[in-house]
């Protein structure tokens, strides 16, 4: 099971959101599993066509995922996945 952590900014919209263990082989599969537990969260993270939103970052360990378009980066059972917002604002 991979461990997923979220930016605290998302708890404003999903108050029950907390670190969780996820069974998934790709980032996309992980997001779909998170959506099952927190309906609606997927639209906060990806665009209509499934690509990662421009100002959302997903790290596998300390590295940004490579495929922001289709989210095919593989996940290993002991990985730590971090879902953060990019440093942008105004």
């Amino acid at each position: 099971m991979a461990k997923v952590r979220f930016t605290s900014a998302l708890t404003r919209f999903f108050p029950d959101l907390a670190e969780m263990d996820i069974q998934a082989s790709t980032v996309r599969e992980a997001l779909l599993n998170i959506e099952k537990k927190h309906p609606g969260i997927l639209s906060y993270l990806v665009e209509d066509d499934g690509q990662l939103r421009k100002h959302v970052n997903i790290f596998r360990g300390e590295d940004l995922i490579k495929d922001r378009q289709s989210l095919t980066d593989e996940i290993e059972p002991n990985d730590e996945i971090l879902i953060f917002q990019a440093l942008s604002g105004g």
């Binding site: 900014a9 998302l10 919209f13 639209s43 906060y44 993270l45 665009e47 939103r53 100002h55 959302v56 917002q85 990019a86 942008s88 604002g89 105004g90």
Partner: peptide
């Protein structure tokens, strides 16, 4: 219009 999370 969230800068990070899209339109809601």
């Amino acid at each position: 219009s969230h800068r990070h999370w899209g339109e809601k």
